[in-house]
Simulated assay, not measured.
Amino acid sequence: MNDGVILLVEDNPDDEELTLHALEKNRIGNEVVVARDGVQALDYLFCTGAWADRAPCDPPALVLLDLKLPKVDGLEVLQRIRANERTRLLPVVILTSSNEDEDRLRGYSLGANSYVRKPVDFDEFVRAAGQVGMYWLLLNQPAPD
């Protein structure tokens, strides 16, 4: 399995805890870094702010991105990821409660690799998180450096 970091961008503490539990339950042992707003996510990705000491040549293996975020929303984060040469090929999975057609269309138009609606049922959520993790960290072949 890809042992790289998973960047979880999630402002809801309950959804954060649920996602972390689902990854653990599915034996996805990657380190998870949590950004609780869009600014924190961008700081992590571009090694600025609190993450200025992080090596820029060490991107996460996967970004799990919520859309409804404070400070900078998820679609803006995605747009900035795709606009930067160093991060434009990062696997980004939108993981959100939004089922709006417009959000899906904008997400894919901005370059999301996948759009997963958070299931309301706990067991379904655990199963969905496991499938996302297994696909993106085990089966998917990332772009070469």
Rank of each mutant, 00 (worst) to 15 (best):
E31Q: 09
E31A: 01
V32T: 09
V32G: 01
V33Y: 04
V34P: 01
V34T: 09
A35D: 08
A35W: 04
R36F: 00
D37C: 03
G38N: 05
G38I: 05
L42C: 03
L42I: 01
D43H: 03
F46W: 02
C47R: 09
C47Q: 11
G49N: 13
G49P: 00
A52H: 06
A52E: 14
D53G: 04
D53P: 01
A55R: 15
C57H: 14
L62G: 03
V63W: 04
V63S: 02
L64G: 05
L64A: 09
L65T: 08
L65N: 07
D66Y: 06
L67T: 05
K68P: 03
L69N: 09
P70R: 00
K71I: 05
V72A: 03
D73Y: 06
L75T: 04
V77W: 08
V77N: 09
L78S: 04
Q79R: 10
Q79S: 07
R80E: 06
I81M: 07
N84A: 13
N84K: 10
E85L: 05
E85H: 07
R88H: 13
R88G: 03
L89R: 15
L89M: 11
L90T: 07
P91T: 12
V92C: 04
V92Y: 08
V92W: 07
I94F: 10
I94L: 12
L95F: 10
L95M: 04
S97E: 03
S97T: 12
S98C: 09
S98Q: 04
N99I: 01
N99F: 00
E100Y: 14
D101Q: 13
D101K: 13
E102V: 15
D103P: 01
R104T: 02
R106I: 15
R106M: 15
S109L: 13
S109R: 11
L110H: 02
N113D: 14
N113K: 11
N113S: 14
Y115W: 09
Y115H: 06
V116K: 07
K118T: 06
P119E: 10
V120Q: 08
V120F: 07
D121H: 11
F122D: 14
F122R: 15
D123N: 12
E124S: 09
F125R: 06
V126L: 12
R127M: 05
R127A: 10
R127G: 00
R127Y: 00
G130V: 10
G130D: 08
V132T: 08
M134E: 14
M134Q: 13
Y135I: 15
Y135K: 13
